[in-house]
Design a protein around this nucleic acid. Structure first.
Lengths: 204, 204, 204, 204
DNA sequence: AATGAATGAGGGTTCATTCAT
DNA sequence: TATGAATGAACCCTCATTCAT
């Protein structure tokens, strides 16, 4: 948790104002863009006074950062828990692909914030890359390593780069879906992504 | 070309002020971020007065958009020309991968602008996706289609999504390289990307 | 007493919270300045909750005003009592000079508040001048009048202005001492002040 | 000159906007108080846009500081020039007293700013005391020293403190005049101040 | 009496853009 | 074409004050 000034206990409840502001911010930022959105907009959407936002967040930037951290922490925790229940590396990667696409397919506003607003500047980007994104990439890489060790995946591939290939593919699926004027099923792209990643495009 | 108030001819000469401002903007935006950079910064870096910028560009946004269009037009034109000289779809895709990575590896500031600053808002993103990026994805898709027709690539793959997989992978390579504190060779990631994309990660 | 919402009795007891807040305010205002100090700072320094301050003072201004009134009432009362024990106008003035300088020398924070923070605006200044300061100037003037009547001081001097001369001199001693980076004895300036005021600077 | 961002030549003219803002600020600050006055008020009074103020002054504080420096520089320069034409230390001091009182008597708004607004906080006060005021006190002290050397003034008096006595008396005359509801001649207090300072109040 | 979470009004400052020269 | 002084709209954040508990 990066958010500011929250004493561990007192604010955690508070009628759930912290969560309310976060949810409101996702909606407001997604619809209007981070830079164009005013803190007052977020406050109004959350049903609190302008000043109240600053009881839970250090400043406007902190709201955006908190969205990222909040969602990533949750996703990583849940992801790790589920992966622990799976043995087969192939199944693990399929699980990751589906979880990634399903998460965003189920919350378009969140997808917009993640794919667009959070890339707003190197200030944010560097902060994220340096931590959670790296963690996420590691998660993937380790599964690939496992697969190589078990002989399911061929060896000889640089697994760090390979992990980025998969992440990049997923990221592009979501970005494209978010920006496309056409409305199609994001999750339905999973099969092709998985097929290409596992088997390549060459004729066998 | 989206930039304003310029007669198509005057642009090329004009003491090269148009190009000078564009180059200055790439540097300034890359170092300081688009939103934090002032038009005055760009003007100073280009060695012109503030007002002069508005003789070549409609507004601040137009500078950013023009960078994108300028570079993409050039890249697409050159790309198409080179691909026309190649027969083999496999070689064509390899050519695309290398061209993509080499272009950004050779101009880090440009890479920052493309990977970070241009993602600043849905306003920009939608604009780009709807045009040049779609064009770029089409370029890739058509090569894959060709490959399938020639029997080099297996059929059954949705080529639109497959094209996005490759683009996403390339995009992630560049983004990661731009944001990484470590300095490594961007182009050296090409082999793994190509290998995974053509052959997949499964053991044959 | 100008402070609000307190029944005249409750103030004296109340666990001494009234006095505690006043003392805390002197320290806080002296260190940080009145305008930069927050009511919350005063509350914390006094060991009470923010809201509690408003049980003893009408608003932030009232705290500052109350400091002034509290200290002046005390000083005037004690001053009058002591002067009543003295006959000689010369001795009386010397007593005033020493009392003035000693009071502030013994409480630097109070001196800062009186010499700097209380001059913050015409709103305060006019309020004070119209009342306690005028009273203080009167006190001095009357002693000078007495001295003239007794033939100790020469007549012909406008005693209202003369009283201001002495007060101005004392005020400057304190202000200078408060603002000076050098740390010297404030009280030690008394002799010169008295000497000049009584005898002038001309060679006899 | 402490004011900001003014390139030595270009702004010195500028339709006299610098001077216009300064004059407007004296009026606005005197009438409404520094803290209550908005930069927009000053801009409107000066007949310029809000932003223009920031072309000539670093920030709101800088306006106040510039008033002080501007006036003091002028006063010190003119004061020194005139004193240079006078031989007699007695006449020199009389000249200082009259100049001091006349300057403020002729510009009540300026007097309010100097006697009230500029004392607003230790931040300002310390800045001023440390420089121009000290210079002013030195000016007086040196004249007194001269007088002692010439045998016009009695020796044995600490001239640093004695200078503060005179300055304090003058300062109090102006403050009292500014804050008094009664409207009387400030300059008419000069005679008594001079008489007391030179001859004391004791009967000869 | 005491608390402290919540309120919301208010303003200094920046900077994209214009336009007289 | 080119300049750069002038403009003025726009907004984040602070903090005095309130009030339900």
């Amino acid at each position: 948790m990066t958010s500011a000034r929250r004493t561990s206990q007192s604010k955690e409840k508070s009628n759930g104002k912290y969560e309310a502001i976060l949810r409101a911010a996702i909606k407001v930022f997604a619809r209007g863009g981070f830079f164009n959105s005013k803190v007052a907009d977020v406050a109004r959407a959350a049903g609190v006074a302008d000043g109240t936002v600053y009881l839970y967040f250090k400043n406007k930037d902190d709201i955006l950062v908190s969205i990222f951290n909040h969602v990533m922490d949750e996703a990583l925790a849940r992801g790790r828990a589920r992966l622990a229940e799976i043995e087969d590396p192939v199944e693990k990667l399929k699980r990751i692909v589906h979880a990634h696409l399903e998460r965003f397919a189920g919350d378009r506003d969140l997808a917009v914030v993640f794919q667009v607003e959070l890339r707003s500047s190197t200030k944010f980007m560097e902060q994220f890359s340096a931590t959670k994104v790296t963690e996420y990439l590691e998660l993937i890489r380790i599964v690939i390593d496992e697969g190589q060790a078990k002989g399911v995946f061929r060896s000889g591939l640089n697994t760090t780069i390979t992990a980025k290939v998969l992440f990049g593919a997923l990221d592009e699926m979501v970005t494209n879906w978010v920006l496309s004027r056409r409305r199609y099923s994001l999750v339905s792209t999973a099969d092709t992504v998985i097929d290409v990643f596992f088997n390549g495009i060459n004729r066998p």
